[in-house]
Design a protein around this nucleic acid. Sequence first.
DNA 1: CGCCTAGTTGAAATTCGTCAAACCCTGTGG
DNA 2: CCACAGGGTTTGACGAATTTCAACTAGGCG
Lengths: 230, 230
Amino acid sequence: MAYHNHHSHADCIRLVPIFNHLNDEQMHLIAQSANEVQYVKNELLFRFGDKDDTLYIINNGRVRIYSLSESGREQTIRILHPGDFMGEVAVLQTEGYHSNYAEAISETSICRIHKKDLDQYLDRYPEIMRRILSDITKRLQLSEKQTVQVSIEPVEARIIDFLSENVEDEKNHTYVTLPMSKKDLATYLGTTPETISRKFSSLEERGLIKRHTQKCIEIFDLDELLFVSS
Amino acid sequence: MAYHNHHSHADCIRLVPIFNHLNDEQMHLIAQSANEVQYVKNELLFRFGDKDDTLYIINNGRVRIYSLSESGREQTIRILHPGDFMGEVAVLQTEGYHSNYAEAISETSICRIHKKDLDQYLDRYPEIMRRILSDITKRLQLSEKQTVQVSIEPVEARIIDFLSENVEDEKNHTYVTLPMSKKDLATYLGTTPETISRKFSSLEERGLIKRHTQKCIEIFDLDELLFVSS
DNA sequence: CGCCTAGTTGAAATTCGTCAAACCCTGTGG
DNA sequence: CCACAGGGTTTGACGAATTTCAACTAGGCG
């Protein structure tokens, strides 16, 4: 169960790009009106249709935003990391309702700020609004890209694209550490675990990748992989 | 070819929700720094990768924003109508590049405002930024919805959903006037013209709709239609 | 009136999801 | 330390939905 902590949250505020340009005094002021909440793994922060008027800031852990279709299939929309915020819909519109589900995918601590408090800060420090706007604009771009991918790229190209965005290099080996289970990856890429699994097998058979463990995949030739996908 | 008109554009500014809360004098000031450009049907306003630092406001006509996949397939992202704006990516980030294509789908006149001018107005009238933020937030919601639909709802459900969002009522007849060609509708719904055509035929055979002209479709029972799609 | 593009229809091919079974990894409790 | 349970993962077989290719038709504009 979520538990509330009413101690100092300056860390939380200091962490967030939308606030971290403020000076200590200003941040302290904002921290006053934030309250911290803890969630355990798999706990829901809110669900579709919930009425809410708070801004959520991730302090620690990770949160998954997803949506459900009529038929019950999930589409993961994004994963939030420490410093990210959400709930802007609720905050910017009077009478805001959540349009998605949010779930903690690990032990997570977040800060909540109520609309009425945030509104004051927005008036007093216009830079905050500028930064929120900048963040949301970036997300809009990402979301539009995701739409295009899910709609017109075949699954294999989506997987390759995802891999290429998560490569890490280590002493002439290129590999990817999957940041989530294949089950969740499937809902993120708009497909099913089975299809993900099959595509990985196919890529491995063709000598393009090698699966070391469930989460760690070696890529033999990234350029060739990207070439294959187009 | 686009031609420039340097006369008064107060109309243009007055039209736009992000500015229309200002008084006459303020709007006049902004209109000073806007310049009007005309485009003919099918003319490109900008393309992916173009560097740009202007905000575009639709004065008249319609503009289609779309994206191209590796394989050359198009995905229509949205259609802009008079009063809508675009180019926020360019305006909010220094060094902004367009991430999509924009095409006039009818004779279109737009107003352009340069970043350096807009920035002044944003500082002077914070309400403008609030409204831009509100608009972009709504678009983000729509974009996320589009992602989910395209990825997990079958084509028929997407079509029905689209129809239901575009119904007009007129003396106990419910009908829809398609705001774009079926070709473009197909790229909007993430499918092909052939599939769109087949689904419409199927819906007509089942007595749910009737095609009067290419653009005008009568809906016999909206509730039943929505029921069928779930 | 005729051309050109958009739209329609059919048949074949393909991708992908579903269902089912087997496997494997991890953590738990004996 | 091992056995077991349970979820995630893999693989196969199958079928449904959709795309592709091709041919044909219809509507709009010169």
